[in-house]
Simulated assay, not measured.
Amino acid sequence: MKPINVQLTNKTILITGAAGFIGANLVLTLLSDNTIHTRLIGVDNMNDYYDVSIKEWRLKEIQTVAEKSTSSWTFIKGSIADKELINSIINTYHPDIVVNLAAQAGVRYSITNSDVYIESNLIGFYNILEACRHSYDNGEKRVEHLVYASSSSVYGANKKVPYSTDDKVDNPVSLYAATKKSNELLAHAYSKLYNIPSTGLRFFTVYGPAGRPDMAYFGFTNKLLKGEKIQIFNYGNCKRDFTYVDDIVEGVKRVMMGAPERRIGEDGLPVPPYAIYNIGNSQPENLLDFVQILSEELVRAEVLPEDYDFEAHKELVPMQPGDVPVTYADTSALERDFGFKPSTDLRTGIRRFAEWYKEFYRV
């Protein structure tokens, strides 16, 4: 186990993408923990890549919890691609910990809308790194730990499973994957040059209540409710390491408190205080089995009627460009260093999503 070397109590934490799926859940978790007293600063550009009302709902949930919390909450609407804004936030609030979860998500969307990936995932992340670098100029304190979202997509079409952080990841199959690999390389360079402790987290197929509508479980539900067919790629011969959002957040929280140690190498120069971890459930589910569980839980939650003909609404189709046949996380490093392994089973997670969906959309 790594020692806890970054305390959360009485710290200022900047969370980008704070109205996003993982970001909002992280904020809620930190605000709900009254054993810590933190100042949370959230940033999100509230873009319309998906239904903004879901982001607004998340922010309302945060505000409700914040009113009873021993920690404080400040929300700033803006983009991490806005260099002046990011510098202003760093110079105003002097965060001790930065958690960068802001990014343009989605593999397929990156094929048709490339510009936004360069703007958010590359320029935006560069702005975060630069702000961390200058956070201790002019005698100001430095950022203790930068934690940022990478993705399982960096493994590309790796044949070896489960995916290990020791594997080479030089063959991305989508622009999205390439930008996430670029984040890791940039973070490594800044860790080496400026001694900034940074940890990248490769998330595996995150799902749960109030998730992203572009994810399969959410999109399938929308289509089934409209009586449309759902397309199951690679003729159902795909496996995904579905990871429940609460497990992701618990992993992020633990990692925040365990920054890579700053130390000097034999050459007299800093050894990069840099780390990468997978956060996944380590139990890949076949897409057809996943659809079966989803259908059963949608019926149970009364989102769909008991006599719904699911077979008539399934269509098996070829693999999509940018997709991979399997994702499967080796989380042994996360378990070794933080004593944590995601454990929420798929049915439990899908059940919570179905119940949220019924309530949110008043089905």
Rank of each mutant, 00 (worst) to 15 (best):
A131I: 03
A131L: 07
A131Y: 09
A131C: 11
C132D: 13
C132A: 13
C132S: 09
C132K: 01
R133S: 11
R133P: 03
R133N: 03
R133M: 07
H134I: 05
H134E: 01
H134D: 00
H134C: 09
S135E: 03
S135R: 14
S135Y: 03
S135M: 07
S135L: 05
S135K: 07
Y136A: 02
Y136F: 12
Y136G: 04
Y136I: 07
Y136T: 06
Y136P: 07
D137I: 07
D137H: 07
D137T: 10
D137Y: 13
D137C: 05
N138P: 06
N138W: 13
N138I: 11
N138C: 14
G139P: 04
G139H: 12
G139A: 06
G139L: 08
G139Y: 03
G139T: 08
G139E: 13
G139Q: 13
E140T: 12
E140I: 02
E140Q: 15
E140G: 08
E140H: 15
E140A: 13
E140L: 08
K141A: 13
K141W: 10
K141R: 15
K141Q: 10
R142G: 13
R142Q: 15
R142W: 11
R142M: 06
R142L: 06
V143Y: 11
E144P: 11
E144S: 15
E144G: 12
E144V: 12
E144C: 12
H145S: 13
H145Q: 10
L146C: 03
L146E: 10
L146Q: 12
L146M: 03
V147R: 13
V147H: 14
V147T: 15
V147F: 14
Y148V: 00
Y148M: 02
Y148D: 02
Y148A: 01
A149I: 04
A149M: 07
A149Q: 06
A149N: 03
S150E: 01
S150A: 07
S150K: 01
S151K: 05
S151I: 00
S151R: 04
S152C: 07
S152F: 09
S152W: 14
S152E: 14
S153Q: 13
S153G: 11
S153K: 08
S153T: 12
S153M: 03
V154R: 01
V154E: 00
Y155N: 01
Y155R: 06
Y155S: 00
Y155L: 01
Y155C: 00
G156L: 01
G156M: 00
A157D: 04
A157C: 06
A157N: 05
A157H: 02
N158D: 01
N158R: 06
K159P: 02
K159Y: 06
K159E: 05
K160C: 09
K160G: 12
K160T: 14
K160Y: 09
K160L: 13
K160P: 04
K160R: 15
V161D: 05
V161N: 07
V161C: 10
V161G: 08
V161E: 05
V161H: 10
P162G: 04
P162K: 01
P162S: 05
P162N: 00
Y163V: 02
Y163W: 11
Y163D: 00
Y163A: 11
S164F: 10
S164P: 07
S164H: 14
S164D: 05
S164G: 04
S164Q: 10
T165Y: 02
T165W: 01
T165F: 00
